[in-house]
Amino acid sequence: MNAEIIAFIALSTIALVSALLVVLRENPVGSAFSLILSFFAVAGLYALVGAHFVAALQILVYTGAIMVLFVFVVMLLNADKPVLDFLKTSKWIKMTGAAAGIILLIVTGIALQPARTIQATGPWSTEQLIASGGHTRVLSLSMFSDHLFAFELTSFLLLAAIVATIALAKRRRS
């Protein structure tokens, strides 16, 4: 029982419980805020395993950009009124959904058991990462040399998304 495990349990509990709350809360704003909490916890998990760059990006991009956008849109569309939409969803869909999810969870859990024994040794164990100057440095070096093409493509994708969103959401001059 070392600190790592305790931290892991705490963070993962927060992440999972707030994810559940996203689904179960009536108020969309409440859902949004639960999601933000979940994202924070996940960032913590990333940091725990040593993927610091990813953790930072998680906070910057997911919580900082995406969730802010979500809250903006919720407020813009006046969708923050609590809607008792759970009651209106057909009972069958709710039950089937829940059952399917649980079953899938169990099945996947069983399927993932072999993962317990993977002991691959690759070039980047945690010690080597620290020795090479940290996760951020190594990852960015790799991204900007071997995977430069994908990086550039992603920037084009972002450009396309911006153009599309503006075209979609623009108010029409009638």
Partner: peptide
């Protein structure tokens, strides 16, 4: 979709 995914994963 979810059901189909369940079948495929299964």
């Amino acid at each position: 979709f979810a059901l189909a995914l369940a079948v495929v994963l299964g």
